[in-house]
Amino acid sequence: MKGERAVTASPVLPVLLPAAERMARTALRERANGAPLLRLRAAHGIALLVTFAVGCALAQSQVLPANPSILETIWKWTPLLARGFVFNLAISFVAMALGTIAGLFLGYAQISLLPPVRKAAWFATHFFRNAPWLVLLFYCMFLLPFEVSILGVTIPIPDWTKATLGLALPVMANVSEIVRGAIQSIPTTQWEAAASLAFNRRQTMWMIILPQCIKRMLPPWMNLYAILTMATVLASIVGVNEMMTLTQRALSAENRPGLLLAFYSYVLLWFFVYCYPIARWTVRLEKRYAVNQ
C-alpha cells in the first residue's frame, strides 16, 4: 500500500521511502496550514547557545586587560535590551490583535455567498499574504502621514504605530487564510445536517461550524504569532526603538567589532526563549486535536 502510493505519486526509490513519507506529510501539513511551517526546535536553541558561547569566547580573547569582560559588558546592556524586547512584545501583541480581528472578517468574507465580496476578500488576502513583510512595513512607514488632523486636533502617528500596522497587514491575510481553511475543512455533511434541521446559514456558521473551527485554528494561529514575534525586529530597519535597534546602538557605543557575534546571538537567545515554549505548546495542541478528530 505504502509502496504503491509512493510509486504512483512520484518515482521514489524504495530506500528513500521513510524520508519521502515524512516529506509528504510535512507538505500536507504545510498546505493545510497555508504557509511553510517555521517551527522552532530544541536543536535551534542549542545551536544558538553554542554560537553565543563561541562568540563570547572569541570576543573575550580580544579583550584588553583594562576593559571589562564580555559577560560584564553584556550584563551592563541587558536592562536596555530588555526594554527593547518589551517593545517588541508590545508590537507583536497589538499587531496580532489587530491582524486577527481584521483577518476574521476577511476570512469570513472569503466564503461569502456574494461573488464580489468573496473575490475582493480573496484578492486582499492573497495580495497581503504574498507581499514581503518588509515591503508592507515600508509602505506603512512612508505612505501613512506622521500626524493627522481631526477637527482641528493634531494627532501624531509615531513610527511604532505605523510599524505595528505594517506588521498587522500580513497577519490579517494569514489569519484570513486560517479561517477560510478551517471553515472549509469542516465536512459538508455538517452543513447538510444543519440545513435539514432548518438552521439558516448564519446560525449554522455561528453555532455549528465556527465552534468546531476554533480547535483547528488555534495551532496555526499560535504558529503565526511566533513568526510575527520574530518578525518584529524588522521594525528596526524603519527606526523603531526595539531590541534590534538598541543592540545596534549598544554595539556602536562599545565600538568593539569582536562583540558582534556575542551580542546578536544573545538577542536571538531572548527570542528563542520566548518563542520556543509557544512552538512546543502548538505541537502539543496539534497532537491532542489530531487524536480527538
Binding site: T189, Q190, A194, S196, L197, I208, Q212
Partner: peptide, 13 residues
C-alpha cells in the same frame, strides 16, 4: 421534513 443520515452527522462539539 427531517432527515437522518448514513454517517449520523451529529454535531461533535
Amino acid at each position: 421534513v427531517s432527515m437522518v443520515f448514513q454517517q449520523y452527522n451529529l454535531f461533535p462539539h
